[in-house]
Design a protein around this nucleic acid. Structure first.
Lengths: 187, 187
DNA sequence: CCGCAAACATGACGATCATCATGCTTGTGG
DNA sequence: CCACAAGCATGATGATCGTCATGTTTGCGG
């Protein structure tokens, strides 16, 4: 290779991180390859030295967001209090307003559903993410925990997705607050 | 006007219905104006006699899906059993596999969130839809009912959105079945 | 019965985009 | 120390798309 291997790998990572942020902020179809490369400090020509296609970039970007998700989970304790802290952070105004730094599911779910090339990567990482979430659920049997995880994740994602699709800040906050309350007091 | 008014109105409606189906099936950015017109039995040139822009069509298409949503709600009884029947239908494999005929929220939520022109229409119709859902919730106070509606809708939408983003049919069905069970036995 | 304008079709325009072609630059393997 | 190829930039290409221009048809108001 012509450039130091470490440097090349770092640029690759920068591209993936820029893509992960831009895609979540503006959608898969709302961001061009050129924009991603510019955000990574390169020009569009170098793109195909790193990825076979935009679809390949999307797949890697999804993987990157999963790493970030796991970091967020790791920051809370593995008990009921930690879970509630996580839910509270997830359903916060900060997350609502910063989709580029937030959950992939809440930012891109329906676009992924319409993009056959993105679904395999999403599916793989959704499984990882569910397992991680599950491992931090306190008590009960493994089966019950998995069910609880699926329900809790569905509710969190649905709330954020609806709040984001809304134009009215008061309504968005009502959705988040209501679901937050429901998830942190029930069970 | 040159064409009979009724005929023109009918064509307008055909365009909106075709758009509502195509957008939900393949996404806002995945469907071109020409495709919608062809599906409505016209050519692309006539489009701007009916709509000011693609954004305007999107807004009307969202309104159309809301009408369809309300029809679905009206089909069940206004009690606990009716609510559970509705949830069961919503979280069915038939709905999973037919996004073009299903809920807008589950089909387009994240794309709407990324499209400033679509958000006002969505917000307006989300309010309508929430009110209708609420009016069919049995018992309790109005405030509690609104909270229950928001939580239930969030969970249903989240589950469908995640199931649709998934490549693995078994996982998709697990999500639907789990959330369906949670919503029809709890409370 | 006539002229006007609405509705529709064909076709064009300009912009955007993913991808590829080409050439330069530069470090690494030999 | 040298040749090769990886990595990057500039620029081109072909396709798609939203929108507009133009011409034609045809029913409605007068």
């Amino acid at each position: 290779m012509r450039y130091p291997e470490a440097e090349t790998a770092e640029k690759h990572q920068r591209i993936v991180e820029a893509a992960a942020a831009l895609f979540r902020a503006r959608g898969l179809s709302g961001v061009s390859v050129s924009e991603v490369m510019k955000a990574a400090g390169l020009t569009h020509g170098a793109f195909y030295n790193h990825f076979a296609s935009k679809d390949a970039l999307i797949a890697e970007a999804i993987a990157e967001t999963t790493k970030q998700f796991l970091d967020g989970l790791a920051a809370v304790s593995a008990d009921r209090a930690g879970l509630e802290a996580y839910v509270t952070t997830y359903l916060s105004r900060a997350h609502l307003d910063a989709p580029g730094k937030g959950c992939v599911m809440a930012a891109l779910a329906t676009e992924i559903a319409h993009d056959p090339a993105a679904k395999p990567s999403f599916t793989k990482h959704f499984n990882i993410l569910l397992t991680a979430f599950l491992s931090r659920f306190p008590g009960k049997s493994a089966a019950a925990t998995r069910k609880d995880s699926i329900q809790t994740v569905s509710t969190m994602v649905g709330a954020m997705v609806l709040a984001r699709a809304t134009d009215d800040p008061a309504l968005a906050e009502e959705i988040l607050a209501t679901v937050k309350h429901g998830l942190t007091t029930a069970n």
